[in-house]
Amino acid sequence: MGKIALILALVIVAAATLFLQPEHAGLAIHPMDQFEISPLFGHGDISWYTPTNVTAWMAIAVLCIILLLVVGTRRRAIIPTRTQSIAESAYGFVYKMVEDVAGKDAVGFFPYIMTLFMFIVFANFLGLLPFSFTTTSHIAVTAILAMLVFLTVTIVGFVKNGTAFLGLFWVSSAPLALRPVLAIIELISYFVRPVSHSIRLAGNVMAGHAVIKVFAGFAGALGMFAFLPIFAITAVYALEVLVAFIQAYVFTILTCVYLKDALHPSH
């Protein structure tokens, strides 16, 4: 079945390269156009409430999450169906991560972390569909996600530990003379966290998508030899599938690590 599909795809690619030569085979690469934000209706300015492609793809992500976690588990079967099994695996995966990394007293934050994970993982995977828009490729989105985590962690740290939370910056195991220096470094690294947290996700997703577009542009220019960039696109796409999951995982596990710092600030 897979073999037949592969051969068929190769035949179609070969036929397309032979018969569908572009009228003007120029190098027209617009790798960043896919990230443009446009209103769903009309061409007006984009104000804060305008429904845009961002709205549409976030809504699709919400729909997919509801389909998987609510509709998929509607039977509450002891012996799960395939969809329910996936929902349970996702639940177990994130729950175990929260419990193992952030500690048992962090399970109260599990719905919050699950929300982040499910949103990022679905936004990433939906972004891999052709013609789709990737909401997590925008720094505005990931920065808000990271800032939410940063604020939550900081507030929880101070509420749970009071001023003892500042002990996070005071490395008591280091020699006394070094401690102020370390405190400055720790403080800087603490405030850099949301920056790295957000840029890591948006950067990875955006770079992969842009690379695919660049290769696609080559394919248009190369004519007969278009199969080379098409194979490259396939390879990059496979990598992107990995990245889509891994970046969601990394974002979530870092959230858990930061949460652990907030709940148990001692070094």
Binding site: T50, V54, A59, A61, T135, A140
Partner: peptide, 13 residues
């Protein structure tokens, strides 16, 4: 486009 994205992201979350 930031306010738009942030608004819809908050709604989504």
């Amino acid at each position: 486009t930031f306010p738009n994205q942030i608004f819809w992201l908050m709604v989504t979350l």
